[in-house]
Amino acid sequence: MTENRIPLDDLMVFHQLARSLNSSLDLDTILRTILEQMERIITADMWTLLMLDEKSNELCYALASGNGESALRDLRVKSGEGIAGWVAEHGETLIVPESENDDPRLQQTIAAETPRVRSVIAMPLRGRKGVHGVIEILNPRASQMSDYTIAFLHILCDHAAIAIENARDVARIQQLTITDDATGLYNVRHLYKMLEQELDRSSRFRRPISLAFIDLDRFKLVNDAHGHLIGSELLMRIGVRLKQLSRETDMCFRYGGDEFVVLMPETSAMDAFMQTTTLHRELTNTLFHMSNGLDLSASASVGLATSPPENAAVHAIIGAADARMYDVKSNGRGKVRGA
Rank of each mutant, 00 (worst) to 15 (best):
S210M: 08
A112W: 00
G231E: 01
H132D: 15
L234C: 04
S246G: 13
M123P: 03
R237E: 10
I230Q: 05
E196Y: 08
G184L: 13
H159N: 07
G130S: 10
R204T: 01
K243L: 11
A151W: 00
I121W: 00
H226M: 08
N166E: 10
V188W: 06
V134H: 07
L221E: 07
L229V: 15
G133D: 07
G133T: 12
A122S: 03
A225G: 06
L191S: 01
F205Y: 13
R118P: 02
V240H: 15
L245Y: 04
P140D: 05
F219H: 03
G184R: 12
L229D: 11
L245V: 06
R206N: 09
E248C: 05
A161I: 12
K220E: 11
H228S: 11
L229T: 14
F253K: 01
I173N: 02
D200T: 14
P208S: 09
Q197R: 15
K193R: 12
I238Q: 12
Q197Y: 11
S146A: 04
G130T: 13
D180C: 04
D217T: 06
I135S: 05
I137P: 01
L195F: 04
R247W: 04
A111E: 08
I209H: 00
R141H: 06
A212E: 02
T179I: 14
I121F: 04
L242Q: 03
L229Y: 11
E233G: 05
A225Y: 05
H159R: 10
V131L: 08
R172A: 09
I162H: 03
L211V: 05
H132K: 14
G184F: 07
H132S: 15
M236L: 15
A112K: 07
N166P: 05
L211I: 04
I137Q: 01
V131R: 04
R247G: 01
I162Q: 02
R201Y: 06
E113H: 07
G184H: 11
A142N: 05
H132F: 14
D181L: 11
A182R: 15
F213P: 00
S143L: 13
N223F: 00
N166T: 12
I150Q: 02
R172H: 06
V170R: 13
G130Y: 09
Q197M: 14
I162M: 07
Q244F: 11
N166M: 14
I135T: 09
R204W: 02
I164K: 08
E198D: 12
L211F: 00
V170L: 15
G231S: 05
R207G: 02
Q144V: 05
M145E: 11
A111V: 10
I164G: 03
D180K: 06
N223G: 02
S202V: 06
D224M: 07
T177I: 14
G227M: 11
E198R: 14
A142S: 10
L191M: 13
A160V: 10
L138Q: 05
T177A: 15
L221T: 08
R218E: 07
T183M: 15
L185N: 03
R201I: 07
L211E: 01
I209P: 00
V170D: 04
A161E: 04
K193N: 08
A160I: 10
A171C: 03
G227I: 12
T179D: 09
D200E: 14
L125P: 01
Y192I: 12
K193E: 13
S203H: 10
R218M: 12
L176M: 15
P124M: 14
M236F: 15
D215C: 09
G130I: 15
L245I: 05
K243G: 08
R118A: 08
Q144E: 09
G184T: 13
